Computed example of a mutant assay.
Amino acid sequence: MDDTLRRKIQTLLDQHRTMRIATLRADGWPQVTTVGYANEGFTIYFLCGPDSQKAQNISRDDRVSLAIDDDPA
């Protein structure tokens, strides 16, 4: 990844606080949830309950997709 793209991504991550995370349910269908996040560089942190559907999905299949949202007013 070139430095220009790296800076653009870092700026996007630093300017927002909500994202959508897509996981795969046991039946193979996607589940998308909006969550708040914090980042340290390109490392992204978010909270979810250990018994949540999202946590169950990730523990079964750790592939996820993320999309940074425009933060609500």
Rank of each mutant, 00 (worst) to 15 (best):
residue 1 M to F: 07
residue 1 M to R: 09
residue 2 D to G: 15
residue 3 D to F: 05
residue 3 D to A: 14
residue 4 T to Y: 04
residue 4 T to W: 02
residue 4 T to I: 13
residue 4 T to M: 07
residue 7 R to M: 01
residue 7 R to G: 01
residue 7 R to Y: 04
residue 8 K to P: 00
residue 10 Q to Y: 03
residue 10 Q to H: 08
residue 11 T to I: 13
residue 11 T to V: 10
residue 11 T to S: 13
residue 11 T to F: 05
residue 11 T to N: 15
residue 12 L to A: 13
residue 12 L to Q: 08
residue 12 L to H: 05
residue 14 D to M: 12
residue 14 D to I: 02
residue 14 D to V: 01
residue 15 Q to G: 14
residue 15 Q to T: 12
residue 16 H to D: 07
residue 16 H to C: 07
residue 17 R to S: 14
residue 19 M to T: 01
residue 19 M to K: 01
residue 20 R to H: 12
residue 20 R to V: 10
residue 20 R to F: 11
residue 20 R to M: 12
residue 21 I to P: 01
residue 22 A to C: 15
residue 23 T to K: 08
residue 23 T to F: 05
residue 24 L to N: 00
residue 25 R to V: 02
residue 26 A to S: 09
residue 26 A to D: 10
residue 26 A to E: 15
residue 26 A to C: 02
residue 26 A to R: 14
residue 27 D to E: 12
residue 27 D to S: 01
residue 28 G to F: 14
residue 28 G to K: 00
residue 29 W to A: 13
residue 29 W to R: 09
residue 30 P to G: 04
residue 30 P to Q: 11
residue 30 P to F: 10
residue 31 Q to A: 13
residue 32 V to S: 07
residue 34 T to I: 02
residue 34 T to Y: 01
residue 34 T to S: 12
residue 35 V to L: 15
residue 36 G to H: 08
residue 36 G to E: 12
residue 36 G to D: 11
residue 37 Y to R: 05
residue 37 Y to I: 08
residue 38 A to G: 10
residue 38 A to T: 11
residue 38 A to Q: 12
residue 39 N to R: 13
residue 39 N to T: 15
residue 39 N to I: 08
residue 39 N to D: 11
residue 40 E to Q: 11
residue 40 E to W: 06
residue 40 E to I: 01
residue 41 G to E: 02
residue 42 F to C: 04
residue 42 F to E: 03
residue 42 F to I: 02
residue 43 T to K: 11
residue 44 I to G: 01
residue 45 Y to V: 03
residue 46 F to D: 06
residue 46 F to N: 09
residue 47 L to E: 09
residue 49 G to Y: 09
residue 50 P to E: 10
residue 50 P to S: 06
residue 51 D to T: 09
residue 51 D to W: 09
residue 52 S to K: 10
residue 52 S to T: 15
residue 53 Q to T: 12
residue 54 K to C: 00
residue 54 K to I: 05
residue 54 K to V: 03
residue 55 A to I: 08
residue 55 A to C: 12
residue 55 A to F: 14
residue 56 Q to E: 07
residue 57 N to S: 07
residue 57 N to K: 07
residue 58 I to H: 03
residue 58 I to C: 02
residue 59 S to C: 05
residue 59 S to A: 11
residue 60 R to V: 00
residue 60 R to P: 01
residue 62 D to F: 08
residue 62 D to K: 13
residue 63 R to C: 02
residue 63 R to G: 01
residue 64 V to R: 13
residue 64 V to E: 02
residue 64 V to M: 14
residue 65 S to L: 10
residue 66 L to Y: 14
residue 66 L to C: 08
residue 67 A to F: 14
residue 67 A to I: 00
residue 68 I to M: 06
residue 69 D to K: 06
residue 70 D to I: 14
residue 71 D to R: 03
residue 71 D to H: 06
residue 71 D to V: 07
residue 72 P to D: 13
residue 72 P to F: 14
residue 73 A to M: 04
